[in-house]
């Protein structure tokens, strides 16, 4: 009762009821093998009361634990009529779960350190972006394929309800340079992604015509890794510099 006010911690920071329970046990410096169920339950419920925004799914998990705690307490209070041999401390299962969870949490800490170290080491697998298209076995895509994907994409956009309100002119020349700049930066352009991110229909159309022109004047090449794969556009290397 003395310090609960100073510990105003959002439930969101806890991974789940076990996490919260462990936190309370540490905070109160309680021996995990001898948990005073009544006081820990009280404390636990106080945290639930503090909740402001947890979704129902999460909340139910926390409530389930509250029910379990109360159940354990009641079993400890009630005199048993029959003593089954195996039945020991009603807290036993919970303690085992807590210890198990504590181990996992500690292992996570070690694994997190390993991850941090490893994530900074680059391996040869991580280099697809810098490969030029000649080295990869691609299938060149015809203009018709490109057009087909474009119209499908536009139909999909129409369903999403795009509205062209702004009136802004897009120059073919600028847009072409735009695409080339993009390619120089990112090596390739993912067809769906690129047109998916265009804001208006007009802009998409202009960009699309530019792309067709770039393909036909052989500045860029449209390829697929295999049939029916995503179409990617690469700069032909001769114009790279």
């Amino acid at each position: 009762m003395e310090s609960s006010q100073s510990y105003q911690i959002d439930l969101e920071v806890f991974q789940g009821p076990l996490d919260l329970l462990l936190f309370l046990i540490k905070k109160k410096k309680i021996d995990i093998h001898n948990i005073p169920i009544a006081s820990i339950t009280k404390e636990y419920l106080r945290y639930l009361d503090n909740k402001k925004k947890i979704n129902l799914e999460r909340e139910s998990e926390f409530l389930l634990m509250a029910a379990l705690l109360i159940h354990i307490k009641s079993r400890m209070l009630l005199p048993r009529e029959t003593y089954e041999e195996e039945e020991g401390d009603p807290r036993k299962t919970l303690v085992e779960r807590l210890l198990d969870y504590e181990n996992i949490k500690a292992a996570c800490k070690i694994l997190r350190e390993k991850e941090a170290k490893q994530i900074k080491k680059w391996k040869r697998t991580a280099l697809p972006r810098s490969v030029s298209f000649q080295e990869l076995d691609f299938i060149e895509v015809s203009l018709f394929d490109v057009a087909e994907v474009f119209f499908k994409l536009m139909l999909r956009k129409e369903k999403d309800g795009i509205r062209v309100i702004k009136r802004k002119d897009f120059s073919v020349k600028e847009k072409k340079q735009d695409i080339i700049r993009y390619l120089k930066n990112y090596s390739y352009l993912d067809f769906l992604e690129y047109f998916g991110s265009q804001k208006t229909l007009e802009e998409s159309m202009v960009a699309f015509f530019c792309l067709l022109e770039l393909i036909s004047e052989r500045t860029v090449i449209a390829v697929q890794e295999s049939l029916f794969h995503r179409i990617k556009v690469w700069l032909r290397s001769e114009v790279k510099e």
């Binding site: 949490k105 694994l111 991850e115 994530i119 930066n185």
Partner: peptide
């Protein structure tokens, strides 16, 4: 060199589930 942003670490819940 690779114009690559930070590599994503696993989220806390994913790491916990994984371990």
């Amino acid at each position: 060199l690779l114009k690559h942003e930070k590599k994503q670490k696993l989220s806390r819940e994913s790491l916990e589930t994984l371990s």
